[in-house]
Design a protein around this nucleic acid. Structure first.
Length: 214
DNA sequence: CTTGTCAACTAGTGTA
DNA sequence: TACACTAGTTGACAAG
């Protein structure tokens, strides 16, 4: 992250300049700056490949350099690579070669950049997925708790029969006087459920006629 | 000194 | 078998 916030003065200091001697690197603000004192076009690990911007160091250190110093791509190189990455996440050999030429890098560097870029993209996606799944887990846990409470409440209702007040006397009715609509399963009293047309029928008749229940 | 970033590496795997 | 890719790692470097 910190790299994105670089000051402009730090950026274009180490672009390979053909013919520039390594003993006189370009630096900003005079001497003493330890940032970006490298030519980004230096090949890594002694550079067995031959490429337009072969480094001075390559000539100097033929004999087994342990590991090259850290290279940093310039702002412009990064921008072009990002732009290319937006168009396609992988490169065929021709595209790689062309892009490398354009950026004055070795194809291997372009290839590595794309590999790392894909890895970063995937990591970011994984992190986002992780966040999403965490949120899902949270809401499902909450939903689960709510449903558990509901189950407990319904269990309690089954143990103790419901208390229904008489619409006439406002007194609790005995459970035996309650009946349930077969369609909507709503509990009601026999007295209120009997339609007027059925009044006078034998008590065995259902208060919910087949065609007119609820 | 610690930590985060990133170029560049190695090892392992899939594919034509 | 060669090549391209991914995952994991290393090491340089900057910033806090």
């Amino acid at each position: 992250m910190g790299d994105l916030g670089r000051s402009p003065a730090e950026l274009d200091l180490t672009i390979g300049v053909p013919g520039l001697n390594s003993s006189s690197p370009i630096r900003s603000g005079g001497g003493g700056c330890n940032m970006r004192d490298l030519d980004i076009n230096q090949p890594a690990y002694g550079g067995e490949e031959e490429y337009p911007m072969a480094s001075i160091e390559e000539e100097e250190e033929e004999g087994g350099n342990p590991r090259p110093k850290k290279l940093r791509l310039s702002k412009e190189q990064s921008r072009l690579l990002e732009e290319s990455f937006r168009q396609h996440h992988t490169l065929n050999p021709k595209q790689k070669e062309a892009l490398a030429m354009k950026l004055k890098l070795r194809p291997r560097q372009v290839e590595v950049w794309f590999q790392n870029r894909r890895a970063r993209t995937k990591l970011k996606q994984t992190e986002m997925e992780c966040e999403y799944l965490k949120r899902c887990f949270g809401s499902l846990t909450e939903e689960n708790r709510r449903l558990q409470r509901e189950v407990e409440e319904l269990r309690a209702l089954r143990v103790a029969p419901p208390t229904v007040l008489s619409p006439h006397t406002r007194q609790p009715l005995p459970a035996s006087s309650l009946t349930m609509c077969p369609r909507c399963e709503r509990v009601t009293t026999a007295a209120t459920a009997i339609p007027r047309a059925l009044i006078g029928r034998p008590p065995s008749a259902s208060p919910f006629p087949r065609s007119t229940a609820c």
